[in-house]
C-alpha cells in the first residue's frame, strides 16, 4: 500500500489501484453465488485470518516491531465473543465492539512488558505472551472449558436479526465487517498516529530528539493492533461457532506472521497473504492431505522470493 504507491513515474495515468480494488470487492461479494459451500467457508476463514494479519502488519510492516503474539489478543477477542454468545448476547456488532475492547485492554496490559524490548527480543517476548495466554485459555477451565473449547450459538448480524447458520450469509457478514475494519485501518494509517508509527520504525532516537514520547506512541499503536486482533477473534466465532486454545496457538501465530511477510509491509498485501495461506494449507492441502507441505513451500517462496521481487522492482 505504501511502498508501491510512492514510486513516482512508475504508475500509469489510469487509476489502476482503485479499479483493481473495486473489481476485487465485487468478486468477493459475488463469491457465494460462484463457488460452493466448502469454498465459501474457507473464504470466510481467510477473511478472519486476514484481519489478524492486518493487526500484525500494523506492528511488523508499519511500526517495525516483529510481533509474533497477536494471536493472543485474537484469542482474547474470540473468548469474549463466545462468552457473550453463551450468555445470550448474539448480536455480531456487539461482539465486534466488545472483542475489540478486550483485545485492546489485553494489549494495554501487556504493552509495558513487551515494549521494553526491540527486534529479536521483542519477538521472543511477544511469543511468550502468546504461549502464556494460550496456556491460560487451556487451564482456566471454569471460564474457557479448557482444551475442549467453547461451542456457541449462531451469531446474528444485528440484534434480533436472523441467525447466521448458512455459510454464504456468514461469509457476507464477515466480509462486511472486514471491509469496515479495513476502512478503519486505512484511516489510521493516514492519521498522525500512522505517520508517528512509521517514524518510530525508521529512527526511534530521532523521534525522541524531536520530543516524541516514543513509548506512549508505540503503546497506542500496540493497543490499536490489539483491538484489530480482538475484532478478528469475534469474527472467528461468527464463522466457527467454536473457540479453543488451538485458535490462538503457535501455528496460528506463525501463519499470521507469514501472511504479513507475504504482504511485504503493505496492508492489502497482508490480507492477500492470509488468503494465500488458507488457499495453500486448506484448499490445496484439504484435497491432497499435503497442507503442511504446501505451507512449507509458501514459507520458502516468501524467504527467497522477496529479495527477488525487490530486485525486479529496482
Amino acid at each position: 500500500m505504501t511502498t508501491t504507491l510512492s514510486r513516482p513515474g512508475v504508475l500509469p495515468a489510469v487509476p489502476v489501484r482503485p479499479l483493481v480494488f473495486a473489481g476485487t470487492v465485487t468478486v468477493c461479494v459475488a463469491l457465494p453465488w460462484i463457488v460452493g459451500a466448502y469454498q465459501i467457508s474457507l473464504a470466510a476463514s481467510a477473511l478472519v485470518l486476514g484481519t489478524l494479519a492486518m493487526s500484525t502488519q500494523l506492528l511488523v510492516g508499519v511500526t517495525g516491531l516483529p510481533a509474533f503474539g497477536q494471536a493472543a489478543y485474537f484469542g482474547v477477542g474470540a473468548y469474549t465473543a463466545a462468552l457473550l454468545a453463551n450468555a445470550g448476547v448474539t448480536a455480531g456488532p456487539v461482539h465486534l465492539v466488545a472483542a475489540a475492547s478486550t483485545g485492546a485492554a489485553a494489549a494495554l496490559a501487556t504493552a509495558p512488558i513487551v515494549l521494553r524490548t526491540r527486534a529479536t527480543t521483542f519477538m521472543m517476548v511477544t511469543f511468550a505472551v502468546q504461549s502464556l495466554t494460550a496456556t491460560l485459555a487451556s487451564k482456566w477451565k471454569p471460564v474457557t472449558n479448557g482444551d475442549d473449547g467453547l461451542h456457541t450459538p449462531a451469531v446474528r448480524p444485528w440484534p434480533g436479526g436472523p441467525a447466521l447458520t448458512v455459510n454464504g450469509f456468514t461469509y457476507l457478514y464477515v466480509l462486511a465487517a472486514v471491509l469496515l475494519l479495513g476502512l478503519l485501518m486505512a484511516v489510521l494509517l493516514r492519521s498522525r498516529l500512522g505517520l508517528v508509527l512509521r517514524g518510530n520504525a525508521d529512527h526511534e532516537q530521532r523521534m525522541a530528539a524531536l520530543g516524541h514520547r516514543v513509548t506512549g506512541e508505540l503503546t497506542l499503536g500496540y493497543v490499536a493492533a490489539g483491538a484489530f486482533a480482538g475484532a478478528g477473534g469475534a469474527l472467528l466465532i461468527a464463522v466457527n461457532r467454536y473457540v479453543s486454545p488451538a485458535d490462538m496457538g503457535f501455528e496460528v501465530a506463525a501463519v499470521t506472521l507469514l501472511a504479513a511477510a507475504i504482504g511485504a509491509g503493505s496492508m492489502t498485501g497482508a490480507v492477500v497473504g492470509a488468503a494465500l495461506v488458507v488457499f495453500a494449507r486448506d484448499y490445496l492441502g484439504g484435497s491432497t492431505e499435503h497442507g503442511p507441505a504446501f505451507l512449507g513451500i509458501l514459507f520458502l517462496l516468501v524467504a527467497y522470493g522477496r529479495p527477488l521481487v525487490k530486485r525486479l522492482r529496482s
Partner: peptide, 13 residues
C-alpha cells in the same frame, strides 16, 4: 532522517 519517509513526512514529524 527518516529514510523511508518523504521529505514532507520528515518535517511533519
Amino acid at each position: 532522517v527518516f529514510r523511508r519517509l518523504t521529505v514532507t513526512a520528515n518535517v511533519t514529524l
